[in-house]
């Protein structure tokens, strides 16, 4: 075999390896694009619905009332516990502050800085105590016929 022929044979082998590598990269790329597409679709599906959509004055995802301080409250008050802990309670400004202090002392709640006043005002304004007296009337009665 001449040097010339040997060179071409080596060259062809090198090309073959190159083609295999290219094909492999292509396959991986196609798979990658396929999955990227899929996750894109999923992402679109999630963001189609605005996570902070508000309907009839209610922030749908948390059930909190739309008012000044809503997003500060959502961000700081619903990462450890559910917003249901807010919406089911009715407290004065002092009561909400004491809840915050208790969480800072025992539950790892961070210093809320300037947001504290915004949050406390939001909660005290939208979730204030209602006077219930010593015993309320029986509420929400669903009448039904007893056989």
């Amino acid at each position: 075999m001449t040097n010339h022929k040997r060179f071409w044979k080596r060259e062809r082998a090198a090309y073959r390896v190159l083609i295999v590598i290219c094909a492999a990269v292509l396959v991986v790329a196609i798979i990658g694009v396929y999955f990227a597409d899929k996750s894109d679709e999923e992402y679109v599906a999630v963001s189609e619905e605005d996570p902070n959509r508000i309907e009839n004055g209610i922030h749908l995802r948390t059930g909190l009332v739309e008012a000044e301080g809503l997003m500060e409250t959502v961000t700081n008050c619903t990462s450890c516990h559910s917003a249901k802990l807010l919406t089911q309670n009715r407290l004065s400004k002092e009561g909400w502050v004491s809840a915050i202090r208790w969480m800072q002392e025992t539950q790892n709640l961070w210093d809320l800085g300037d947001n504290e006043e915004i949050i406390v005002n939001y909660l005290a304004k939208n979730y204030p105590p209602e006077s219930k007296g010593r015993r309320e009337n029986i509420k929400k009665i669903n009448w039904y016929e007893l056989q």
Partner: peptide, 9 residues
């Protein structure tokens, strides 16, 4: 039922 209300569930 408590009045004034108590915090918690």
């Amino acid at each position: 039922e408590f009045n004034p209300p108590a915090k918690g569930n």
